[in-house]
């Protein structure tokens, strides 16, 4: 179910401000691609253009093409709702629905399509929670509110919720930045398991994390504050971290700025 994503010459705006400019890249299926770069370089904005979440912000818009296999996500007949249904997302801060139980949180996306029997739902919820390595911790309290879990558990709940609808791609926007080291490790392990099945794109501030989990790494940078962010280079993760072609990448990796 994993798909290749191809981006060509993409710009994204907030009102009249151009946040990212001229980005083209190919994201391989069944692999983990990491986006790194200093704050404000547009890596999160770019991630949000991949499932049309960018345009949710008032005044925000996108120019360019994003192709999932052979379909343009920004094509005139494409409904952004179905794009988001196909390309799942996990956010920086865990955001389970506070009024829903753990079970209902995981089933939320499925219920939208509304054609599942109770046993089908139970099956998918169990499978998704197992997939998110959370099943053993919550199987006895599926009817308790999701907000009662720890931060790391909540984030894994959000991952379970995202994979329950069987997306073709999973986007993760700094999924560990609000978590402690142990929870971070659990999520990283989970990412390596999930890539068997999904195409994963992860934005991270943590370069060790990018090195640990990803096959490919893309480095973003901006010339100056207020300038649009650009893709500087993208390559095998091992190459980016040992022998980058660009000076800016090397400076960033070695901690000279950012």
């Amino acid at each position: 179910m994993a798909k290749q994503i191809e981006v060509s010459d993409l710009d994204a705006y907030y009102g009249s401000h151009k946040a990212i400019e001229g980005i083209s890249m190919t994201i391989e299926p069944r692999s983990v691609t990491a986006f790194i770069g200093p704050s404000g370089c547009g890596k999160s904005t770019f991630l949000r253009t991949l499932n049309r979440m960018h345009e949710v912000i008032p005044g925000a818009r996108v120019e360019g093409k994003v192709r999932l296999e052979d379909q343009d996500l920004y094509g005139p007949s494409v409904d952004p709702v179905s794009v988001r249904r196909t390309i799942g997302m996990v956010f920086q801060r865990p955001n389970p629905f506070p009024t829903m139980s753990i079970f209902d949180n995981v089933a939320a996306g499925l219920k939208l399509n509304g054609r599942f029997s109770k046993s089908q739902l139970e099956g998918v919820v169990e499978e998704s929670l197992k997939g998110a390595n959370l099943w053993n911790e919550v199987k006895t309290r599926l009817n308790k509110p999701g907000a009662g879990l720890s931060g790391g558990q909540q984030q894994r709940l959000c991952i379970a919720r995202a994979i329950a609808v069987r997306p073709q791609v999973l986007l993760m926007d700094e999924p560990c930045s609000a978590l402690d080291p142990i929870s971070t490790l659990a999520i990283e392990d989970l990412i390596s398991e999930l890539k068997q099945e999904f195409t994963i794109v992860i934005v991270t501030h943590n370069m060790q994390q990018a090195a640990r989990v990803s096959e490919k790494t893309a480095f973003f940078n901006l010339a100056a504050q207020g300038q649009p962010g650009k893709l500087i280079e993208m390559d095998e993760t091992s190459k980016i971290f040992t022998n980058p072609t660009q000076k800016a990448t090397e400076d960033y990796i070695t901690g000279r700025f950012g």
């Binding site: 179910m1 296999e69 409904d79 179905s82 794009v83 399509n113």
Partner: peptide
């Protein structure tokens, strides 16, 4: 069945 491509949402939901 392998779901491919972007599945449009059901007419009922859109309506």
């Amino acid at each position: 069945t392998v779901v491919t491509g972007i599945q449009p949402i059901s007419a009922g939901r859109r309506v």
